[in-house]
């Protein structure tokens, strides 16, 4: 049974039934437990709207959302349960920090879940460790730490709720390369070691090519493609036409292919690209 299933979900944002005001149209996808899904699309493609359907923030105008096989809008009681299962990290999550100390802020979510004090403490420590926030930082005010640290503290606040599904909306936006790398690593670790399902919304294919199992491409409120990373990168033309930011290396290899070189299409990381070119060079030496 898939952990997330969307059936024909359409969302109309202004109450009218105007075709223009449909933020997402007939979206049907399913996600298996433990998968890492990357969602890509440019601004206004409906990707943020889509993920807000996953934890009862938005109610689909048409269609159904199933989490763990349960129709989340069937019963009002499901709301709290769903939010417990699905952790949503919004864009620029550091703007939601508010407690006196980082520690208290991370504890806010677990506290709302009604856990025991010991359990809360345990979870806060674990989450802080996952996002590499040191003990002395925990006692500081969330407003006097650096931007990257704030971002990680905010993510820790969601991780401490131990969601089955972690959904992130551009978690690395606006950070410097170091900060970005750290965030991507944290998400990857959560996926790998905690065996949780991850949905990662981003503009940058480069960021998720390394980590994701599947990529969902949205354009104009519709799902254009939902496939493995290998298959997604096969159609470079389509990606480019949609104005997506594809990795430089993909573009290079695509151009080489156009020039008639025999290079496989499913290469999108530097490591793979180097190996492929190296092998071709070795072949050439032999001849």
């Amino acid at each position: 049974m898939p952990i997330i299933e969307l059936k024909d979900v359409t969302y109309v944002y202004d109450g009218t039934d105007n075709l223009k005001s449909r933020a997402i149209k007939n979206v049907s996808i399913s996600v298996e437990k433990g998968e890492y899904i990357g969602i890509i699309g440019h601004t206004g493609s409906g990707k943020s709207t889509l993920i807000q359907h996953l934890n009862c923030i938005l109610k689909p105008t048409y269609g159904k959302v199933y989490i763990d096989g349960v129709d989340i809008w069937e019963d009002k009681k499901n709301l709290a349960k769903t939010r417990k299962k699905v952790g949503l990290v919004f864009q620029y999550p550091e703007y939601q920090l508010f407690e006196e100390t980082v520690e208290k802020d991370i504890a806010f979510g677990p506290k709302n879940l009604g856990l025991s004090t010991q359990e809360i403490e345990k979870r806060v420590m674990k989450a802080a460790q996952m996002v590499e926030i040191d003990q002395d930082l925990l006692l500081k005010s969330p407003f006097e730490i650096s931007g990257g640290e704030k971002r990680r503290a905010a993510i820790a606040g969601i991780l401490a709720m131990e969601p089955e599904i972690l959904v992130l909306d551009e978690p690395a936006a606006g950070l410097d390369p170091l900060g970005k790398e750290k965030i991507l690593k944290i998400i990857d670790n959560f996926h790998k070691y905690e065996k949780r399902t991850v949905i990662h919304v981003t503009h940058s294919m480069e960021d998720i090519a390394k980590y994701a199992d599947k990529i969902l491409i949205m354009n104009d409120g519709e799902v254009v493609s939902y496939d493995s990373v290998d298959n997604t990168f096969k159609d470079v033309d389509m990606l480019q036409n949609m104005g997506l930011d594809i990795p430089q290396i993909t573009k290079v290899l695509f151009k080489l292919r156009q020039k008639g070189f025999n290079i496989p299409s499913n290469i999108y990381t530097v490591e793979d690209a180097v190996n492929v070119v190296k092998n071709i060079l070795i072949e050439k030496e032999k001849r």
Binding site: Q248, V270, V274
Partner: peptide
């Protein structure tokens, strides 16, 4: 300085090293 380089630069550097 803890800086990265563009992906193509990184790629080509690595290729030069390996080969």
């Amino acid at each position: 300085a803890n800086l990265s380089v563009p992906q193509v630069t990184e790629f080509f550097n690595l290729l030069c090293d390996r080969c």
